[in-house]
């Protein structure tokens, strides 16, 4: 075999990609910086692992008799989620029509309204909860308000994007026969976007059920308050029971809502 043949057998060298190395260096730098800043040490965690595991073992033996106490709170939590999903998604419905650029053509209005929406979307649910607890006081109303704003943020983003992708044909037809803006929304836009709206509202409901179970921890009503009480009193068996019932309810609701959304989109 000649030298050139041997060269032919070699695979061509990969191009040297500088950016890959820049990313790797940035990642390592970020890791070092964040470990330093947070003073996290895994050895310390593994040294105390038995304490962590002990809580977990206790949670794994749920206190079944506690289910009777937990379920009414869970029902309240679900009610909170339902109310806030309904109010929040109705608000989002109107707002999305206002910020969709194929319905409102004034760029200044949509721009300002979108800016407000993006600001609302940045605030995490628990922060909203703690602000509303400070505003209206401890109780389910604070939770409902927080989840309403949160639902609004989730639905509005998905929904206005759906509105902007609708087929312009029916709208143009309505305008061509002399329909006004309301006619346009009623007969051309609505039939196209209603399935999406219901689907997004159901999706927001799934998130809300999950979020509402911990809102009580900061005093915003629902089962989270019991979560806090049992944790504060080191009754981890009862905490385990709460987590178990919440998990089961979340599973059921996720399943039902996924099936409903699939049926809608078909």
């Amino acid at each position: 075999m000649s030298a050139t043949d041997r060269d032919m057998l070699k695979l061509p060298k990969k191009k040297f990609k500088m950016w890959n190395w820049v990313w790797v260096i940035l990642m390592v730098l970020g890791l070092v910086l964040s470990v330093n800043n947070t003073k996290t040490s895994l050895p310390e965690f593994f040294a105390n692992f038995d304490q962590f595991a002990e809580i977990f073992v206790q949670m794994a033996q749920p206190d079944w008799s506690y289910a009777g106490t937990a379920i009414p709170y869970l029902v309240e939590t679900i009610k909170m989620a339902i109310i806030s999903t309904v109010i929040g998604s109705l608000l989002a419905f109107v707002y999305s029509l206002l910020i969709a650029r194929n319905i409102v053509h004034n760029r200044a209005i949509t721009g300002v309204l979108r800016f407000i929406m993006n600001i609302i979307r940045t605030i995490p649910d628990l922060l909203l909860g703690s602000i509303f607890v400070a505003v209206v006081g401890i109780g389910p109303v604070a939770g409902i308000l927080a989840l309403t704003v949160f639902t609004f943020g989730v639905v509005v983003k998905l929904f206005y994007e759906a509105i902007e992708t609708i087929d312009p044909g029916p709208s143009e037809a309505i305008k061509a026969v002399g329909g006004n803006g309301i006619n346009n929304i009623m007969f051309a836009v609505m039939p196209q976007i209603l399935p999406y709206f219901i689907s997004y509202a159901l999706y927001a409901f799934e998130i809300n059920v999950r979020a509402s179970t911990i809102l009580g921890y900061i005093g915003a009503g629902g089962i989270g308050l019991q979560l806090k009480n049992t944790l504060d009193m080191f009754n981890y068996n009862q905490t385990g029971m709460i987590i178990l019932v919440v998990f089961l309810v979340v599973l059921v609701i996720d399943f039902v809502s996924t099936k409903a959304r699939e049926a809608l989109m078909r």
Binding site: T38, F45, I214, I243
Partner: peptide
């Protein structure tokens, strides 16, 4: 679906309150 806050409290028991 395991609440993040409960997890945080469990870790607080193990490594103490704070960023870790």
């Amino acid at each position: 679906s395991f609440p993040e806050i409960v997890l945080a409290l469990m870790f607080i028991k193990a490594v103490g309150p704070g960023a870790p």
